[in-house]
């Protein structure tokens, strides 16, 4: 057992972990931030996506010890300082980019990583960037639309409410 400390959404969190303890487990159980979800065990669904030192990673595919000393951001760290929804979160609500909500944290974290790299992506770039995040509810239509809107692009010509 090893002690690790990391900053999660600006808060320093320490805990004792085994070698095999996953970062997602540390976030959910030690830090109590259950917004990060685990939807598969082959690193494909992306529900567990968080940012480690600014880079998006699948937290169920990384050991907690590997994030020792790191700066971690999860969905709980994405709202504005006053608690209101951040730009991407607000766009997801405005454009109905979520239904059951389970994949949503990973989608928001992925969108944030994309828009940091590429502030005005094309539809195709958004879809390709989401290739590591599965959603079973929305058919992706409104997720893509929400991300396009969050990037400041006009989405009024995209079909439907």
């Amino acid at each position: 057992m090893t002690n690790v400390t990391m900053t999660i959404n600006g808060r320093s969190v320490s805990g004792t972990v085994e070698g095999r303890t996953l970062l997602s487990t540390f976030i959910r159980e030690t830090a109590g931030a259950t917004g990060t979800h685990v939807g598969c065990d082959t690193a494909q669904c992306g529900a567990c996506t968080v940012h480690v030192n600014g880079a998006s990673v699948k937290s169920c595919n990384m050991f907690a010890m590997e994030a020792d000393g790191a700066d971690v951001t999860t969905i709980e760290g994405m709202a504005n300082a006053d608690g209101s929804l951040g730009t991407i979160q607000q766009a997801f609500q405005d454009h109905h980019g979520l239904q059951c909500g389970f994949c949503t944290p990973g989608m928001v974290m992925t969108a944030a990583a994309l828009l940091k790299e590429n502030p005005t992506p094309t539809e195709g770039e958004v879809r390709e960037y989401l290739s590591g995040n599965l959603c079973r509810c929305t058919g992706y239509h409104n997720i893509v639309k929400a991300i396009m809107a969050a990037s400041g692009q006009d989405v009024s010509s995209i079909a439907a409410e």
Partner: peptide
């Protein structure tokens, strides 16, 4: 390769 998150690791 893979997806953006996989490429970061």
């Amino acid at each position: 390769i893979g997806d953006p998150h996989v490429r970061n690791r």
